[in-house]
């Protein structure tokens, strides 16, 4: 059982990481979801062997499964869920603004990367890119 869970976690981590490295926000969000599930599986596996539901009065306490990792996984799940919802909202907003959900480069950073050329050329290009960004926005 534990081996199976560990394998599942490994597959989730691998696919999640691959999706995370894409440029489209929609894929990144799916990737993060998979990574989150992988992490939660690790947390569940940390609880050790399976047992009966830890409800007092239903079975012997000695056969109980460890409830703490489950509680922690639930909390982590809720948090991941909330953040994923927020990311989706942001992707929606980005699509509204640019009709695209690609995660873009930092223009400022690109410009500094090209520093060393004559200032005027850099300034012109920066201005052009900003005008483009504003045009996209409106």
């Amino acid at each position: 059982m534990t081996v199976l869970l560990a394998l599942a976690a490994a597959v989730l981590f691998a696919t999640g990481t691959w999706l995370l490295l894409q440029r489209r926000l929609s894929r990144i969000i799916v990737g993060l979801g998979l990574l989150g599930h992988g992490a939660n599986l690790v947390l569940i596996t940390a609880g050790g062997r399976r047992g009966t539901p830890p409800l007092i009065g239903e079975s012997e306490p000695s056969t109980f499964a460890d409830p703490l990792p489950q509680a922690m996984a639930l909390t982590a799940l809720v948090i991941t869920f909330g953040v994923t919802a927020f990311l989706l909202a942001m992707g929606f907003r980005s699509w509204q603004l640019t009709h695209d959900d690609e995660v873009e480069d930092d223009i400022e950073d690109r410009m500094i990367g090209r520093a060393g050329r004559p200032d005027d050329a850099v300034d012109d290009e920066l201005a052009a890119q900003r005008a483009q960004a504003e045009e996209d926005a409106s």
């Binding site: 989150g36 992490a39 690790v42 947390l43 569940i44 940390a46 922690m72 982590a76």
Partner: peptide
């Protein structure tokens, strides 16, 4: 979360 799982 993963590190927490390992520590636990």
């Amino acid at each position: 979360v993963t590190v927490l799982g390992l520590v636990y």
